[in-house]
Design a protein around this nucleic acid. Structure first.
Lengths: 212, 212
DNA sequence: ACGAAGACTGAACACGTGATTAGTCTATTG
DNA sequence: CAATAGACTAATCACGTGTTCAGTCTTCGT
């Protein structure tokens, strides 16, 4: 659906697709319009003809990627991870683009994030209703945390992947994370009775603050 | 220790500190050397005199921030979050700088990440030994996952903070995340018996792959 | 006091790159 | 068959910005 034969695409679409890849790989600033034009097989001027300026091109890319992403979520987003796993090579680029847009607080990213959180919260609510998921004291915050974690895993930086023995992130790394994620999501990290050492102390200390 | 009176700093240190802020707020590419020089109260030429070129300045910043971070970890890192909470305004900048360096795979970031993972794994091992933390099938992967999550929380993008009703990330948002994090780390997400719906199915599907 | 080394300045340079513009080609319409 | 519009090109401009350089000022050792 997304990587059709490049021949039957309009020039504008070709430019957009190439630009998306460049924006992800080099960042918006560093991305070079001449290089994009060359790779898309068009002249530089055409970019401006279609998109007005570099920011316009970016807006078009944001719009396209986020719209596609939102559509995919629309007909039954169960989980970002699940989606990703269905075809890693296909979605890796788009996921990274989305993550980048979110971190840079692009306008199109706002509604996208809202939708994700909304859906995630609804999904959890379902689970709670049928007893498969534990209830939470703050359902909204839990949804946010879950999105945050999913995004983090899917955009794992190279040094962390390397700490797992792989050159960079990919299906193998993801599979390696299966066990700890599974454990965390089913049993948690700490044992039942005592909530000790590190994080807990910090959280507690933080909570003391608004008593003062 | 870090924000002393700007007057008694050497010019090179002043430049470095200003540069760190600019690199975080605008990114390395967009950061303007003239603006940095002006804000540091020196001429543009001096930057090149001390740091050779822009890349040199960046290397110096990387080195400084990561060294400071590593020192802090050295004398008893318990938890990234705990550290952060001790003085959010002070560390916010540095944490974001580190996260950026890690994502861009800067050379100095590699050893830093390794140290973090190492320490985290050791910490978990302690906990497992004294019974406060559950054992894991893959201790290394769990440590990586934990670092990943900590980093993600501390560099939470604005749209997600907004989904929690705040303008951007800060101590309040962090406190809001306390409950779900606490729940996740003590009980997990799913109830005991069945591991249903979303993520689980995906993880399972993924595992099937290497049977084929 | 003198000389050298290094801190420091400000103007000028070089060049990459986003943007403009004049003009050509293609195709649709009346 | 004009004629109009839009896709498209290639040369050119404009300018921000990293970098260099010649020269001045400060400091310090002898």
């Amino acid at each position: 659906m997304s990587s059709v034969d490049p021949n039957d695409l309009t020039a504008a679409a070709k430019i957009r697709n190439v630009a998306i890849r460049h924006f992800v790989q080099e960042g918006f600033q560093k991305a070079n319009l001449r290089a994009i034009a060359a790779e898309a097989g068009v002249s530089i001027g055409l970019i401006f003809h279609h998109f007005k300026n570099k920011a316009g091109l970016r807006a078009a890319c944001d719009d396209h990627v986020l719209r596609v992403g939102q559509d995919r979520m629309g007909n039954g987003m169960r989980d970002l991870l699940a989606d990703y796993l269905s075809d890693p090579d296909e979605y890796r680029l788009q996921v990274r683009y989305i993550a980048r847009a979110i971190h840079e607080d692009s306008p199109s990213a706002r509604t996208f994030v809202d939708t994700m959180v909304e859906q995630s919260e609804a999904l959890f609510a379902e689970g709670v209703a049928d007893g498969s998921i534990r209830p939470s004291a703050d359902a909204r915050a839990r949804a946010v945390l879950h999105i945050l974690i999913s995004l983090a895993v899917l955009t794992m930086p190279p040094p962390l992947a390397r700490a797992l023995g792989h050159e960079d992130f990919g299906p193998e790394v993801l599979r390696r994370l299966t066990a700890p994620t599974y454990e965390l999501y089913t049993q948690g990290l700490y044992t039942d009775q005592n909530l000790p050492t590190a994080a807990e102390a910090a959280w507690a200390a933080e909570e003391d603050k608004d008593d003062a």
